[in-house]
C-alpha cells in the first residue's frame, strides 16, 4: 500500500511536467512575450523601453526554452519555461501579468466556488439516487417508463436553457431570489439557492439514468434473489442490500470529482456572476493573462491526480476484494 502510494506520487511528476509543457507550448506558439506586454500595457503608443521594462519586471526578458548565451546549467535555468515552472511545482504562483498576487486571488475565490459546487454535488447525489431507486423499485411498470422518458427529455435540453429559464422564472417573474451576484458570509445563501437548484435539476436526466443502470445490474445478482427468497420485502432488499453494494461505484465516482470542486463551475459562475475560480479562469483567458491560466491549469491537473489517487484508496476502503500493488 505505502509503496504503491509512493509510486503513484512519483508518477505525478512526469504527468505534471507534460501538462506544463503543453500549456506552455499552446500559449507561446502564437503569443510572443512582446505581444503579451503590448496587450497588458495597452495596444497603442507603447515604447520599446516600456515593453522591455514590463518584460523585465515579469521575468519574460529571457529566451523561451534554451538560453544559448548563458553558461553551463544556466542554459536551461535562465529561461522563461524553467523560471515559471519551478515556482508552480512549489505552489508559488507568483504575480499575474496584470500585477495581482495569484495565490491570494485563488485563496479568496476558492470559497465561493466551493460554496456553489459542494451543495450542488451533495443535493444532486441525493436527488439522483432517490429518483433512480424509485425507478428500480417500480420497475416494469408505467411509473418506470415515465421516469425513463422524463430522463431522456431532461437530458436533451441544453443546460443553458435550464439556467436562462430558471433565472427568468424565479428571479425575474416571481422575484424570489436575486438574479445574480454574491455576498460574503451567510448572506451568500440567497444568491446560491437558485444556481444550486438549477445545477441539481439539470443533472437529474443523466444522473438518474446512470444510477438506474447501476442498481439494475445489482438487482439481478444472486444475493438479492436470496434475500428475497428468505422473505425480505422489496423495499428492504433494495435499501439494505442493493443500495449498500451499489454504493461502491457511486462512492468512487464521487471521490474522483471531489478535488475538482475547487475549480468551480465555469458556466454557473459566469451566469450568476459568482466570484469563484471558474469565472477567474475565463476572465484570464479573455485577457490572455498567461500567468493565471498556467497556474489554474497546473492546479487543475494536481487536483485531478489527487482525485485519481483518492479513488484508488477509497476502493480499498469500501471493497475488501481490491488490493493495491
Amino acid at each position: 500500500m505505502t509503496s504503491y502510494l509512493i509510486r503513484r506520487f512519483l508518477y505525478a511528476f512526469p504527468l505534471l511536467m507534460g501538462v506544463n509543457i503543453l500549456t506552455f507550448v499552446l500559449f507561446f506558439v502564437v503569443n510572443s512575450p512582446d505581444d503579451m506586454a503590448r496587450l497588458q500595457l495597452g495596444q497603442k503608443h507603447v515604447t520599446e523601453a516600456a515593453i522591455s521594462n514590463w518584460k523585465h519586471q515579469h521575468g519574460y526578458d529571457v529566451p523561451l526554452l534554451w538560453n544559448s548565451e548563458a553558461e553551463g546549467e544556466k542554459k536551461v535555468t535562465e529561461t522563461i519555461f524553467y523560471t515559471k515552472s519551478v515556482g508552480l511545482f512549489l505552489f508559488k504562483f507568483g504575480v499575474s501579468d496584470s500585477g495581482r498576487n495569484i495565490g491570494d486571488d485563488i485563496q479568496q475565490r476558492a470559497l465561493p466556488s466551493l460554496a456553489l459546487a459542494l451543495p450542488t454535488l451533495m443535493l444532486g447525489l441525493l436527488v439522483n439516487i432517490s429518483f433512480a431507486l424509485m425507478m428500480v423499485l417500480f420497475r416494469n411498470s408505467y411509473l418506470e417508463q415515465a421516469g425513463i422518458v422524463l430522463c431522456v427529455v431532461l437530458m436533451s435540453i441544453s443546460s443553458l436553457f435550464y439556467i436562462i429559464g430558471g433565472q427568468f422564472l424565479f428571479a425575474k417573474l416571481l422575484k424570489l431570489v436575486p438574479i445574480s451576484g454574491y455576498d460574503g458570509g451567510f448572506a451568500a445563501i440567497k444568491f446560491l439557492i437558485l444556481p444550486v437548484l438549477i445545477g441539481v435539476f439539470s443533472g437529474i436526466g443523466s444522473g438518474g439514468r446512470w444510477y438506474r443502470t447501476l442498481f439494475l445490474e445489482e438487482v439481478e445478482k444472486d444475493y438479492v434473489r436470496t434475500a428475497r427468497a428468505k422473505g425480505l420485502s422489496e423495499t428492504q432488499t433494495l435499501f439494505r442490500h442493493v443500495l449498500q453494494n451499489a454504493m461502491i461505484p457511486i462512492l468512487t465516482g464521487v471521490v474522483v470529482v471531489l478535488p475538482l470542486l475547487f475549480m468551480g463551475s465555469l458556466i454557473m459562475e459566469s451566469f450568476f456572476s459568482i466570484p469563484g475560480l471558474g469565472s477567474y479562469t475565463i476572465d484570464a483567458i479573455n485577457s490572455q493573462d498567461f500567468a493565471i491560466v498556467r497556474a489554474m491549469v497546473f492546479l487543475g491537473s494536481v487536483l485531478y491526480i489527487i482525485g485519481l489517487l483518492l479513488t484508488d484508496i477509497s476502493y480499498t476502503l469500501v471493497d475488501p476484494r481490491v488490493r493495491l500493488s
Binding site: 503543453l22 489554474m296 487543475g300
Partner: peptide, 18 residues
C-alpha cells in the same frame, strides 16, 4: 492521462485563441 488532467475548457480556449 496528461490530456485528461488539463481541464478541457481551458485546452479548447487556448487552442481557439491560437
Amino acid at each position: 492521462t496528461t490530456l485528461n488532467s488539463i481541464p478541457s475548457v481551458l485546452l479548447i480556449a487556448a487552442s481557439i485563441l491560437m
